[in-house]
Amino acid sequence: MSSKNLKNSPLSPSLENLYKAYESMYLIRRFEEKAGQLYGMGFIAGFCHLYIGQEAVVIGLQQAVTTNDSIITSYRDHGHMLACDMSPGGVMAELTGRSGGYSKGKGGSMHMFSREKKFYGGHGIVGAQVPIGTGLALAHQYKNDNGICFTYMGDGGSNQGQMFEAFNMAALWKLPVLYIIENNLYAMGTSLDRHAAVTDLSTRGSAQGIPGKSVDGMDYLAMREAALEAASYVRSGKGPFVLEAKTYRYRGHSMSDPAKYRSKEEVEDIKSHHDPLSILEAEILRQGGDKDHLESITKDVKKKIDAAVEFAKESPEPSESELFTDILV
């Protein structure tokens, strides 16, 4: 079903919802652009994986999240943290390795957590978060708290053996876990057709009998609808579901990847014709939304991110005594 047909469906979001989604997606976009700049200026080091281009995926899914749900992802995690309402300053200060960061500067870009927001990382070993998310789902089932776990992975992660292991247990025990495969077409530099024997990743759980669906991850409305349907399936106790979000990352795998394995034209085509923010903006205007209001949203977001950058630069490095803390409880 195309998102255009959604207008009269009960799943159709209000204009207010679209504005809010636009704000959240633009927050991620702006945050990541600034992170890229700070990286270039030497404030951020090491591995830094930007989410630009994939914003509609996490914001669409976030529409289906309820109070007790938990969220876990891999190392391309800044967008997920912002979507979970973690503070941009706290995330940015972690990127700069400062004491004001979510992990006091001891985790870095790939390792942030917030028990309060039920965000469980931020994991640097490709695919390792899949069994962990499955375990979070087991905890939801054990405690019978009506929560489900949103477990994200990339197309690259969906080749890992432990993903199939986790899928098997999740299906066997009917665990409340929604697996989201963010298929951005490249596992680092290896394109989908060179790394996956079956490129329809919504079938990743077919051997375990897990239903799946592919969705246009550049289209917020489509993402939102698919997320609500999938989450409601999982929440009803039927077991796991696999949602493949077909998306694209504008930048390289990490800041140190010049992305020479794909053509400029390919990237430009996506940016011009499939940009998630442009698609959502067009939809807002089509529904009679106000261009000026969108501009005021972007202005406010820019201010918010500027403040986050300021905080991340000003926050002091962790005290040297932090070296030996937090090793054991």
Binding site: A128, H140, E165, N168
Partner: peptide, 28 residues
Amino acid sequence: SKRVIDTPITEAGFAGVGVGAAFGGLSP
């Protein structure tokens, strides 16, 4: 069977499930 769980032969998987359950507030 809720508290004594037979797993498939899948060590990486169930070790990770255990870790996730521990993050989620249980003591596996």
